[in-house]
């Protein structure tokens, strides 16, 4: 006992303790539910067997049933559009803002801090706010587009099947841009200033410096930000609940929202779990890239 105690106070035991506490937490609250979800996707689940762990095994039947549903592929395609456009928009805007604030003008750090407000707000609140902006009759977005002469009649963003998904994408870009900007700002701040000075003496214009110094030096940060963006975007649920509820006619439905609908609206827990399992696979792939990109950081 004394040896264990002294190991925790002085030696390797302390390291194990530090690793152990989060590990136990992760296994208990993330690992086990995740495994339970995967297990459930191969079982026949009904309301009477909800409390059981071991239920009739049905193999890939749940997956087959999902694929057979006519909305499966449209919803998957929506998910792809939602994820790529959200990440693309968040990253490009975030990068532009990060470069802008990195010029270090007076008050830049303060204003950059204010941008984080969007990231701090709950998704449901953001959704409710954007419902007003997106409103077809009196929304500010339509007013601006109309004033600029870009549209001739109001767009009903939330109820038009051609626009409903884009309503959520626009809101999600607004929500995630600040987070991208902060991570990218950290990366930009890590690029030594003298590299730009050396490049300017070597004859590089500001544009050439951006492409030959900034972009390659930001590669690992970019990889990390995009991988994290993929994970967060696949988790984005609140905005769908607040803005379109996946409708109309599944036109803005995505995998994560559909999984919730199946499980907690239709009480088809097996199919909900099957979709979640498919998403776990994608997130795992993203995680591998994330871990790799943080490991391959370029150091001076």
């Amino acid at each position: 006992m004394r040896r264990i105690k002294s190991s925790i106070v002085d030696g390797v035991g302390f390291d194990l303790l530090l690793v152990g506490i989060p590990l136990v937490f992760l296994i208990l609250f993330s690992g086990l539910p995740l495994l339970y979800n995967v297990l459930m996707s191969f079982q026949e689940v009904d309301l009477f067997s909800l409390g059981d762990v071991f239920r009739p095994f049905v193999g890939l039947d749940n997956y087959r049933a999902l694929l057979a549903q006519p909305e499966f592929w449209p919803i998957m395609w929506n998910t792809v559009i939602f994820v790529t456009c959200s990440i693309g928009g968040q990253f490009l805007l975030g990068f532009a803002l990060a470069v802008f604030f990195n010029t270090g003008f007076r008050g830049s750090t303060f204003i950059r801090g204010l941008f984080l407000v969007s990231w701090v707000m709950p998704g449901l609140v953001v959704g409710a706010t954007w419902n007003w902006i997106l409103a077809g009759d009196f929304g500010v977005l339509n007013y601006i587009l109309d004033s600029l002469g870009l549209i001739s009649k109001n767009i009903f963003w939330r109820s038009d099947i051609d626009y409903s998904l884009w309503a959520v994408v626009i809101t999600n870009i607004w929500l995630g841009t600040a987070f991208n900007m902060i991570l990218l700002s950290v990366g930009l701040a890590g690029i030594p200033k003298d590299l730009y000075e050396a490049a300017s003496l070597d004859g590089a214009t500001a544009f050439q410096q951006f492409w030959t110094i900034t972009v390659p030096m930001m590669r690992s940060t970019t990889g990390a930000v995009i991988c994290l963006g993929l994970i967060f975007t696949l988790q984005q649920f609140d905005l769908f609940a607040a803005i379109t509820s996946g409708g109309p006619a599944n036109s803005s439905n995505v995998a994560q929202y559909w999984a919730w609908e199946l499980s907690f609206r239709q009480y088809d827990f097996a199919r909900g779990a099957a979709i979640s399992t498919i998403m776990i696979a994608f997130v795992m792939i993203a995680s591998v890239f994330y871990v790799r990109s943080t490991r391959h950081e370029v150091r001076g």
């Binding site: 030594p192 590299l195 050396a198 490049a199 003496l201 004859g203 590089a204 030959t212 001076g300």
Partner: peptide, 20 residues
């Protein structure tokens, strides 16, 4: 005149090599 047009080369204390 901006540095790139002055035709001068500089060796920095930190070397400022392009790490990538």
């Amino acid at each position: 005149m901006p540095p790139r047009r002055r035709d001068v080369a500089m060796v920095f204390q930190s070397y400022a090599l392009y790490p990538h």
